[in-house]
Design a binder for these strands. Structure first.
Lengths: 158, 158
DNA sequence: TCATAAAGACAACCTAGTTGTCTATCAACA
DNA sequence: TGTTGATAGACAACTAGGTTGTCTTTATGA
């Protein structure tokens, strides 16, 4: 076996990179007073704040089923980051509203990820990191934009 | 909100990249006759073939608990990719052996990931992809090498 | 030989998804 | 004005992939 430069290795590097950032962010969120908030949940919160104000819409924007979205919403509501109000315009819907605590958590999460990114920039150089992001955006972003999410700042996962 | 070049976006790009490769690989593995094999399981198979011949050892190499490793092993065994033999040298251990079907699946998985990687190379250029990998390896690989896994070709996730 | 460490089995639980079924509601159209 | 079809969300059951904790069996080293 040659074991040089394999495709599987690329996949593992990407996963490893995400896990490293996500784990560090989880730990730091916990340290800053948000112990039960994982990055995925924080991303969902961000999507809701950006306009995904119903479970079905959140599911569409995150490319997950509405049932999966409902579970994230239930968690976020239980932890006080989110409120579900009755939508007077459409009584089927529950209107999702980010609480003040939720906004604080989002700010903390944003700051943490920015800090983690700047550590990476120090490690490999700002330009190299910019380039890495640009190339990844070309590879991932283009393939995964679904029309409804186009105004959501490229934060859609798939 | 400025929404330029945020740290969270970097994390999502990495996750998105992995998911894209993993989803494509899962679909292609299914198309080639291995419908119940996910990339994570294939990576575990690869680790076992590379010498992680017990559940505890697999757990150490993949940086997961031995119980989690045992679950992956149970799945792989149930699908016929793996056999668990009695280790005559140590009767506590079950010796993990990749079956012929397992080896076929690994070969298919390797080919698929290599093909996916070459599609990416076509999209952004071979040099750009090499550089992306080198930089990611610097960021991720160095932080995550645990001594026992050092001889395992950098395939460790964490 | 005996204390300790390690391997694995088993159970209970969590997160993050899935599909399927069901009810309530809205919206559009004959 | 109704009826019909799409949508929102609740609920259940399931899967994958993890966790911690407890337990028994077996090695191993002082």
């Amino acid at each position: 076996m040659l074991m040089t430069r394999k495709g599987a290795n690329l996949a593992l590097l990407l996963l490893g990179g995400f896990r490293q950032l996500a784990d560090a962010a989880t730990a730091e969120l916990s340290r800053r007073g948000y112990p039960e908030l994982r990055p995925t949940q924080e991303f969902a919160l961000r999507a809701i704040a950006a306009g995904a104000t119903s479970a079905s819409e959140l599911g569409r924007r995150m490319s997950i089923s509405k049932q999966a979205a409902a579970k994230v919403i239930a968690l976020l509501e239980a932890r006080g980051y989110l409120a579900r109000l009755d939508d007077e315009a459409d009584s089927r819907r529950k209107l999702l509203v980010v609480t003040p605590l939720g906004h604080q958590a989002m700010q903390a999460g944003e700051a943490i990820f920015d800090e983690l990114r700047s550590v990476w920039a120090q490690n490999i150089g700002a330009e190299a990191l910019d380039q890495l992001e640009r190339n990844l955006a070309l590879l991932v972003g283009d393939a995964g934009v679904d029309e409804d999410a186009a105004d959501w700042s490229g934060l859609d996962v798939q």
